[in-house]
């Protein structure tokens, strides 16, 4: 279980996270929703070690991760597919996937996982020799997810996988999130598309200006009146 307790993060003098606590139980899909600037991406970037925290604790299965270098966090089993896809545009699809397994040394395991990723995303196998920059937005998102999966993570963190994609493609991405989860990967999903995220999630947290204001199961929050007003587009009466 990934556990975050009383996490404070600030950029310069500006506080981005003001003591948030959340739990991601094994085998579940947990989503973090909120508006722009609420601190969603900061949370994810702090967990992965890209951003330093002021105080608090991030632990996975009891092992403290805060302050550890990025590679140690990855080795502990926490990978991320970053916001805006960020595929390596001038490398081929295959090379991108191999970079995902950069820290691993077991050649057979990498080969096996490559097949696994290709079975999840047959489109990537068809295009394995194509440069990643020439893929469509949806395919690039698949590649970003596939790349993160190549490190064989126990927890996959996804930052806005639906960003800038057509509704039909977004549907496909969320189907894949479910599939990945069924195959035993815990998912921490960060989304602005609250409707889709809440439908797929087991648990959900609502983040507002650096604090968690609400949490519950996906279905609970989906039915919550204030959530409906703020995030799901129901007009005030």
């Amino acid at each position: 279980m990934l556990k975050i307790e009383n996490l404070h993060v600030s950029y310069g003098g500006i506080k981005a996270l003001r003591g948030i606590s959340l739990e991601v139980p094994d085998g579940k899909i947990v989503t973090l929703i909120g508006a722009n600037g609420a601190g969603k991406s900061t949370t994810l970037r702090t967990i992965s070690g890209l951003v330093k925290a002021d105080s608090g604790s991030i632990s996975y299965d009891g092992q403290e991760l805060l302050g550890k270098p990025i590679n140690k966090i990855l080795e502990a089993g926490i990978a991320q597919s970053p916001e805006g896809r960020r595929v390596f545009a001038n490398l081929t699809v295959l090379e991108n996937l191999k970079i995902g397994a950069y820290l691993r040394k077991d050649k057979d395991g990498i080969e096996k996982d490559l097949k696994w990723v290709y079975s999840l995303f047959p489109r990537l196998e068809e295009r394995s020799w194509q440069l990643a920059g020439t893929l469509s937005g949806g395919e690039q998102q698949m590649l970003a997810v596939g790349r993160a999966l190549m490190s064989r993570p126990k927890v996959l963190m996804m930052d806005e996988p639906s960003l800038g994609l057509a509704p039909l493609v977004v549907q496909g991405i969320f189907d894949i999130i479910r599939t990945i989860n069924k195959e035993g990967v815990t998912v921490l999903l960060i989304e602005q598309n609250a409707n889709m995220a809440l439908k797929v999630a087991d648990f959900a947290y609502v983040l507002e200006t650096g604090t968690i204001t609400k949490f519950g199961t996906g279905a609970e929050l989906l039915a919550d009146e204030s959530i409906k007003e703020a995030y799901l587009g129901k007009s005030k009466k």
């Binding site: 590679n71 990855l74 191999k98 950069y102």
Partner: peptide, 21 residues
């Protein structure tokens, strides 16, 4: 593998860092 890591850094430093490079 080193060469791939170099190219990854060239293409996107942040993503490369997130991959543990």
């Amino acid at each position: 593998t080193y060469g791939r890591a170099f190219k990854a850094i060239r293409d996107d430093e942040i993503a490369a860092e997130a991959m543990g490079i």
